[in-house]
Amino acid sequence: MLDINALISPENKTPSALSEQNLTQINNQIANQLNTGILVLDAEYNIVMWNRFLQVHTDKVANNIIGQSIFIAFPEVPERWLSRKLDSVLQLNTPSFCSWQQRHHLFELPHTRPITTDSEFMAQNCTFLPIETDGIVKNICILIEDVTDVCHYQTQLQKTLDELATISRIDGLTQIYNRRHWQGSLEQEYAKAQRHDKRLSLIMLDLDYFKLLNDNYGHQCGDMVLIEVSALISSLLRVEDIFGRYGGEEFAIILPETELSGAMELAQRICSSIATKPLTYKDHKIKVTVSLGVAQLSAEESNYEMLITQSDSALYQAKAQGRNQVCCADFSTSKPID
């Protein structure tokens, strides 16, 4: 931390001590060459001193500003808030701080960075120091540090982290949740439903004859179908439903606070919507259908994986019965699949 007092304290005098005058000259030059703004106020918050950094970063003329109230010289600072803050410095004789993370800037100074930032003004860390003269705090020194770089890189970093967080949850092709995130969500929803004794249903679905589609029309056609089907299903869901790509052409939907009949109804709607939706690929009409298995959480499951097993076996049954249909797990007679 910058401590001008320490520079001029008598203890720092060496045997070849400088004269008071020389010391003052040195201190003035240091203050003027610092890349930090220095603004000194009296107890009425009038400006009594400022350094070159501030002079060159504002359009204000030195003669006009000395003696002016800080709130007149810098009308952009929030007066009531800053007065209260300055009061605390004078009354408690303690330093006070203001970080760019809470307030991007106090003073509207242009920054000198050739980088695109969100603000046209310099991001600032400000420190308010009580200055004692003759044992009484009569002045406040405001130090203004330019932290535009820090602010810029921190913002970039946060943006990248947010992007990474999204990428780690989303399936790149279909833009719905990937398997890992979906399964984590199921674990949470399962725990929630158990704790609060709420209903929970699950739909697993699989595209019929997807391998044939790929073989006949190519993988690009397959990709198109996966994207279209995902979008169609998404449009049929509520916001609280959690839709993910379980594997290749298999999808899964978590339905919180939904009982079996509601889940069956939705599964039927998905089944018929897809069967009646015309898809074309390079002038070929593509007929796509899906098979769906539905299960509801009952007292029998002791973990969320069992719920997946239940709906998976119902899906298997829908496939066995001729595809393009919905089957429901009969949990009264269900047995773990070997």
């Binding site: 803050k85 605390s88 408690l92 303690t94 330093p95 006070s96 701080f97 970080s99 809470q102």
Partner: peptide
Amino acid sequence: LIDISSILTTT
């Protein structure tokens, strides 16, 4: 929170 903390700590 930052303000009250700074005041308590430094005082």
